[in-house]
Structures are given as structure tokens and as C-alpha cells.
Amino acid sequence: MHGSSRDKDKRQQKQASTSWLAILDIEHFKNINDQYGHICGDGVLLVLAQKMRHFFRSTDLIFRFGGEEFMIVFEPTDADSISNKMAEFIQLIRDTSFPFVENMTISAGLARISPYDFQIAVLESALLCKK
């Protein structure tokens, strides 16, 4: 007996789902530190980290990467879902009031993680598509 169409749908979903790497960068962060001081800059980092922790799934891994960059490794999902989720998050940050800072923006790059990719290739791919 062959598998049901439901089993086939699950297999197709599983094949379409993959892990993703996002790199988020606070734009003009040096200016924030220079204009308002490092304590304000630290407050911005803290608020952003809290927003990420509450917005993304608890199973998604969030790391600080450099002074004003963060990396997120997402659990498997499809390309449309992760693209929509990142767009929603970027809009959330645009709408967020940060201490002393008006209109803070972030840029984000997103890359698919394949089990056959070299880690540096995934990282470079995410960096190259930041917008």
C-alpha cells in the first residue's frame, strides 16, 4: 500500500523547510554612541535583544555578533514564512521607541542553511544580502 496524499504533503513541506541564518545590523550605531554616549548605546542593544527574544520563537538561536550586529539561526521553515517574519520584525523595530534615539533602523541579511554549505559561505551570503 502506498502512502496517503497527506503523507506526501508532509514530505513536500519538510523538503521545502530549511534552516536560515539572519544577520541584523543597527544602522549608524557609532553615531548613537558618539552622540548620546555608550550607556545609551547599551540601552539600544538591550531593547533590541529583548524585542528579538519576544518576537522570534524560543527555539531560534540569537547571538550578538560584533558591536552592533546580531545573528539568528532559525528553526526550519519555508522561504516565504521567514521572509515575512523578518519584514514584520524590521517594521516592529521601526515602530519601537528606543532610549534617546529617534527612528532607529536595522538592516538584515538572510541566507538559507544547507547541510552541504560551508559555514563561511552561509555567513557571506547573509552579509551580502543585507538591506
Rank of each mutant, 00 (worst) to 15 (best):
12 Q>W: 11
29 F>K: 09
10 K>W: 13
77 T>F: 00
14 K>G: 04
58 S>R: 15
86 M>N: 10
40 C>M: 10
128 L>D: 09
36 Y>A: 03
60 D>Y: 02
105 T>C: 04
27 E>L: 06
110 L>M: 03
68 E>H: 10
83 S>E: 15
112 R>E: 06
50 Q>P: 01
111 A>L: 04
21 L>M: 05
85 K>T: 12
16 A>I: 01
25 D>N: 15
76 P>L: 06
95 D>Q: 15
51 K>Q: 11
78 D>A: 04
71 M>D: 04
25 D>W: 07
96 T>Y: 06
19 S>L: 00
41 G>A: 10
68 E>M: 07
118 F>H: 15
125 S>K: 09
115 P>S: 07
63 F>L: 11
126 A>M: 05
5 S>I: 13
83 S>R: 13
54 H>Y: 05
5 S>E: 14
4 S>R: 13
128 L>S: 12
69 E>A: 09
123 L>S: 08
17 S>H: 12
90 I>G: 03
62 I>D: 01
18 T>I: 06
14 K>E: 14
8 K>T: 15
64 R>N: 06
81 S>R: 12
67 G>P: 10
100 F>H: 12
82 I>Q: 01
70 F>N: 02
96 T>Q: 12
52 M>R: 01
78 D>F: 05
59 T>F: 08
20 W>D: 00
10 K>D: 13
73 V>G: 02
113 I>T: 05
65 F>K: 03
40 C>L: 05
37 G>H: 10
56 F>Q: 03
15 Q>K: 13
130 K>V: 00
44 V>R: 03
57 R>M: 09
51 K>E: 09
38 H>C: 04
84 N>C: 15
106 I>A: 00
45 L>F: 08
17 S>M: 11
113 I>R: 03
97 S>F: 00
124 E>P: 10
100 F>K: 09
85 K>A: 08
97 S>Y: 09
72 I>S: 01
7 D>F: 10
51 K>N: 06
110 L>C: 01
120 I>R: 14
120 I>N: 14
37 G>K: 09
7 D>S: 14
33 N>I: 10
58 S>A: 15
28 H>W: 11
51 K>V: 02
21 L>F: 02
54 H>V: 01
13 Q>M: 13
40 C>W: 04
22 A>R: 00
85 K>G: 07
128 L>T: 08
40 C>I: 13
93 I>D: 07
53 R>L: 02
60 D>F: 03
54 H>T: 08
122 V>P: 08
31 N>F: 15
